[in-house]
């Protein structure tokens, strides 16, 4: 079992590395953009150009130049997009992982060894979870490091919360999909595997209606913006992956 998990993680290391590379690229671009654009608003020629070309008022320009680049990143991009980028990346990771793992050819090369279907699915689930967690934690560390280096005043707690929460919600997608996969295999715990994802779906759906349930929203209940973008992504991804798995329902080849 341990060997199987190790193998599955190693097999997908390219996707994992791709995700990491993208995170680094994203943070780098973000900071460079901020560094370059912030001083421009202080420049009088640039201000005049904005007035002439876009008809901006003095007040508008003043409000923009009051903001330095780091503020822009922190308030604009950083808090709102970073978790979503992470989420999308994790979902790509999960999707690739699952479609690869349940391909006929891949499965036949494992099932011709003394490995049961149950063990195979379980090892896929565990290695998938570990990969997503790894991706999330590394993204978190890279984020912290980057913003430390450029000496930015980031609210660490808020940062930790958003990043870790988005990782956890990716894990939820993985979990739901794997639950559905398990439920297709059948056996003793079949109903459990079916009921749990359904309950989770309802938790996602009704988060805005019930104030208690809204605590369970993966993006925190006060951040409406994230909920509006993030939750549909989560639900769509879960449904997409379940449909993929449904085609493999008895894990036959």
């Amino acid at each position: 079992m341990f060997n199987l998990i190790k193998l599955q993680i190693l097999k997908n290391k390219k996707i994992l590395l791709g995700c990491m590379a993208f995170i680094v690229f994203y943070l780098f671009t973000m900071i460079m953009t901020a560094e370059l654009t912030a001083p421009m608003f202080e420049n009088e020629n640039f201000q005049n150009m904005l007035k002439e070309m876009f008809g901006m008022t003095d007040a508008e320009i003043a409000s923009m130049s009051g903001m330095n680049g780091y503020d822009m990143v922190e308030t604009g991009f950083f808090h709102q997009y970073y978790p979503i980028i992470l989420l999308v990346l994790s979902i790509i990771l999960i999707g690739k992982y699952i479609t690869k793992a349940f391909e006929t050819t891949t499965m036949s090369c494992y099932l011709c060894l003394p490995i049961s279907r149950r063990k195979y699915v379980a090892s896929t689930a565990v290695s998938l979870g570990l990969s997503v967690l790894f991706c999330g934690i590394v993204a978190y560390l890279i984020g912290l490091l980057t913003f430390n280096i450029v000496d930015m005043d980031v609210n660490f707690w808020a940062f930790s919360q958003t990043v870790l929460i988005s990782t956890l919600s990716s894990l939820a997608v993985a979990y739901i999909s794997m639950c559905l996969a398990f439920s297709f295999i059948g056996g003793k715990y079949r109903s459990f595997y079916i009921v749990v994802p359904i309950i989770l779906f309802f938790v996602f759906m009704f988060k805005d209606i019930s104030p208690i349930l809204s605590y369970l929203s993966p993006f925190g209940w006060e951040n409406i913006y994230l909920n509006v973008i993030g939750c549909p992504i989560l639900i769509a991804a879960s449904i997409y992956l379940s449909i993929k798995l449904f085609k493999r329902r008895n894990l036959s080849l």
């Binding site: 097999k11 090369c109 063990k119």
Partner: peptide, 22 residues
């Protein structure tokens, strides 16, 4: 009994597949 049977079976697939990057 697929898991148990496989201990005593040697198999060559028509469409051979192997784990990637190995």
């Amino acid at each position: 009994n697929a898991e148990e049977n496989m201990k005593d079976i040697g198999f060559i697939a028509g469409e051979i597949a192997f784990p990637e990057n190995m």
